[in-house]
Design a protein around this nucleic acid. Structure first.
Lengths: 194, 194
DNA sequence: TACATTAGTTAGTATTCACTAACAAAGGTA
DNA sequence: TACCTTTGTTAGTGAATACTAACTAATGTA
């Protein structure tokens, strides 16, 4: 589960390629070109193409997990943690727009067992953590408790994803951080406990 | 903008293939096999592969537009219309799961100008209509007016999409109609005007 | 009947793809 | 010094892909 420096370079190059034009753009030729070496050199670092793709997903999932764990362990109220997730995610995507495409490519990975389950795990894991934060918020009174936490998590994550998708489809032209601030206020109004 | 019966057959076959394994699964060979004729026969009905894909998107977009127009013209209150959109969409996806993949493949189409703009148009058009319904709801008092209608539309559409995505990633195993009923209740609670 | 159009066929092509075989240079270590 | 490992190279391969050329059978129409 650990990657060499060279592997991480390749993972980043692959992520950028996916961002530029979907997974179809991720060919061994393009990847080698981006890395500045020949095609066969790729196979010194990864077994095959599926191995590269699953590493891209896994590497991204690891980073996300670490951050979410940090957040959960803090002393803040539930609603505060949700707002911090929005800030973190939107800031992160602003700085690394390439990753966005990887996340939204979830359905493209479907044809490969190994990849689709990787995507599924990332999403499920994140949702579980959001649900537990919402439950905590319902107990500390910062989040309304008249709605099922699982449903609220879908609303929360769906809103975030949709906002990011719009930004992506608009070719990153608007300021995602501002969108984040606005979304944070809306989520607060809609989920705030009485 | 009108399609022959044979073209619609091909559009449906293509949609199913995309559903089964993403756009990568949509090859001329697979499409011909599914249609029960030879590969070159495809080119009697479509100019090229991009033409097929943009027809798939366009055909889907047309159906969606028609339904949304009907909804908007009714006499119901804003919140009622939103609930009807959920019912319609979830029922529709339950009956035609193949289409789900096409919608969520938006990022895969990005590398082709013609296709990415088609996707963008479908989404933008739908969102505009949702925004106008929400504005109406804020005026007739059925939807809270302390939140920007554009933001509420993102929450609404994002929640729907996320619920459908989860259903998809779970291999359609849960009952989407039930999910729709639950989502409808949540949306009502969160958006309801005072 | 003569002819044109439509919608299919078989055969084939250039290109691209992921991946392999075999070799080479550099560095670490016995 | 001798040798092994690591990380790259060049050259090439079989399979798949989108698409074309040329032909044909059926159907509608002048």
């Amino acid at each position: 589960m650990e990657y060499t420096a060279r592997q991480i370079e390749i993972i980043n190059a692959a992520t950028e390629l996916i961002n530029q034009g979907g997974i179809q753009q991720l060919t061994t030729k393009a990847l080698a070109e981006k890395m500045g070496f020949s095609e066969p050199a790729i196979y010194r670092h990864f077994k095959n193409k599926t191995d590269i793709l699953s590493s891209v997903l896994n590497y991204f999932g690891m980073g996300l997990k670490t951050k979410m764990t940090e957040l959960i362990q803090s002393e803040d109220k539930g609603i505060e943690k949700l707002k911090q997730i929005i800030d973190f995610q939107f800031e992160h995507f602003s700085n690394h727009p390439a990753i966005v495409m990887v996340i939204f490519a979830e359905t493209s990975f479907q044809y490969e067992e190994k990849l689709s389950s990787a995507v599924h795990n990332i999403l499920t894991n994140k949702k579980e953590r959001v649900v537990s934060i919402i439950q905590q918020g319902q107990q500390d009174g910062s989040i309304r408790s008249d709605v099922d936490p699982n449903q609220l998590a879908s609303v929360f994550m769906g809103s975030m994803r949709f906002t990011i998708l719009q930004w992506r489809l608009n070719n990153y032209s608007n300021d995602l951080r501002k969108e984040g601030v606005m979304l944070r206020q809306v989520i607060e109004k809609l989920l705030r406990g009485i």
